[in-house]
Simulated scan of single mutants.
Amino acid sequence: MRERATEGGTPGVAPRGETALVTGASGFLGGYVVRDLRAHGYDVIASGRNAAALPAGQTLVGDLDELARVDLGRTVDVIVHCAALSSPWGRWAEFEHANVTGTARALEFARRAGARRLVHISSPGIYAAPRDRIGIREGDVDPRHPMNGYIRSKLEAEALLQRAAAEGSAPEIVILRPRGIIGHGDPSLVPRILRVRERFGIPLMRGGRTLVDLTAVENVALAVRLAAEAPGVHGQAFNITNGDPRPFRSVLEQLLEGLGLEPRYRRVPTAVAYRVAALLEAVSGVLPGHPEPPVTRYTVTTIAHSQTLDISRARDLLGYRPETSLDQSLASYTRA
C-alpha cells in the first residue's frame, strides 16, 4: 500500500484536531464520508484500491490486506470502515475475504494506529425475511438462516467486532446499518433496477404497495460523523434511514419520471416470483463463472415485502436528524 499526499479537502477544526481514515473511500458512500468529514475539520486519509476514484487529499492506495500492515507513524483517531463487497449474489469465499477478513484487517489497523473508535458500515440486509417487517429495531436479528452470502458475511463481521468489544481488545466500536442508500453517483441500487426494467420489466408484486425505507447518501455520511463523535455508544448498533417509508411503486415512478422513462412492469404473484428466482439462482450456480441471475430471492424479498427500520435509537443517542429529503435525493440522481 502506498501513501499519496496531495492538496485538497475543506479546512476546519475537527473535535480535538482529529485524524480519520476511511476505507472504501473510492466507493460511493466512502467518497461522501470523506468529503463530509473534511468539511467538518477532520484530517482525513482516504483509503481504497482505485487511486483514480479516491477523493483529492491524503490517500492510501491498496487493499485491506495491505492496510493491516501499514504503519503511518502517527495516531489515527477514528477509522470509518466502508469497504465491502456488496451484492445479492456471489461466491462465499469472496464475501468472506472482503467482508469478514477485511473487517478483521481494519480492526488490526485501528489497534496499531491507536484509534479511539471504529465506525463500521454494516447492512440492514441482516433483517431480511420473506415477510413484512415494520419498525425493525436493532435487536431484531435472527442470524440462523441468512438469505445469501453477503448477509452471512455482514453478520459474521458484526459478530467479530462485538466479540472484540466485549473482550476489551479493541477501540470503541459503533455499527451503522443504513438502508437503501441512494443519491447522486449511486452505482448499485438504481442501476440494478434500471437494468431489470430494460431487460425484463420490473416485477410488481402486491400492487407495488409494499413500503421501502431509503436513505440519502448525505444522511449516511452525517450519521457516520455523529457515530464518530457521540459519547457513550461503544458496542452499539444503529439503524439509519430517512425515516420516510414510501410505497415501492410510488418511489419507482417518481424516479423513472425524473429520468424520462416509462414504467415497465411484470405483474407476478409473490410465490411465483420466489420460485422463478430460486430456479434462476440454481441455473446461475452451475453456469461457468456463476453469473449473477437477473432476479434473486433476496431481491424478491425487498420488493414483495415491506421492511421499515426504527431509527429512534440513532435519534436519541447520536442526535441523528436526516437533513437531505428523499425527494431531494431522488432528484439528485435524476440530474446526474
Rank of each mutant, 00 (worst) to 15 (best):
D310G: 06
L72Q: 12
A165W: 10
G12Q: 00
Q328I: 03
G8S: 08
E198R: 15
G258T: 04
D43S: 15
V76N: 12
E108F: 11
A46Y: 01
H145A: 14
L21I: 11
H234P: 01
I173W: 01
T299G: 15
T324I: 14
S47H: 15
L60M: 09
I79P: 00
D36T: 14
V141Q: 02
F28M: 00
R206W: 05
V174W: 11
L155N: 07
I173C: 05
T75F: 09
S47N: 13
L189M: 10
S325V: 09
I151P: 01
E292G: 04
E257L: 12
R267L: 12
F95T: 14
Y127M: 06
H97W: 10
G232A: 06
R177N: 01
R4F: 11
T6C: 10
G125N: 08
P203I: 12
R133S: 09
E7M: 13
T270R: 06
V233K: 04
Y32I: 04
R192E: 08
A68L: 00
H120N: 13
G139P: 01
G149M: 04
R69L: 15
A53V: 00
L189Y: 11
P269D: 09
S122R: 07
S86H: 15
R144C: 05
A223N: 02
G260D: 05
V224F: 04
P263L: 03
R179A: 12
T334M: 08
R116V: 11
Q307S: 12
V61W: 05
G30E: 06
A223W: 03
L214K: 10
L54W: 01
P263N: 01
G135F: 03
A336W: 14
R321E: 15
V217L: 01
R117A: 12
T299I: 14
D140I: 04
E18I: 01
S332D: 08
L261M: 06
L189T: 14
L256Y: 13
V251N: 08
L37F: 15
G289P: 00
R249Q: 12
H234C: 11
R137T: 14
G8Y: 07
Y298P: 02
D65I: 08
A51G: 02
R179C: 05
E172Y: 07
R249T: 06
I181D: 00
E156M: 15
G9C: 00
R116N: 13
H305V: 11
G102R: 10
G232Y: 03
G185T: 01
V80N: 06
L64M: 12
G114A: 11
D132R: 05
S306N: 11
W92G: 10
G73A: 03
P322I: 13
D244H: 14
A115R: 00
A170T: 06
A83G: 10
P263E: 05
H81L: 09
P171A: 10
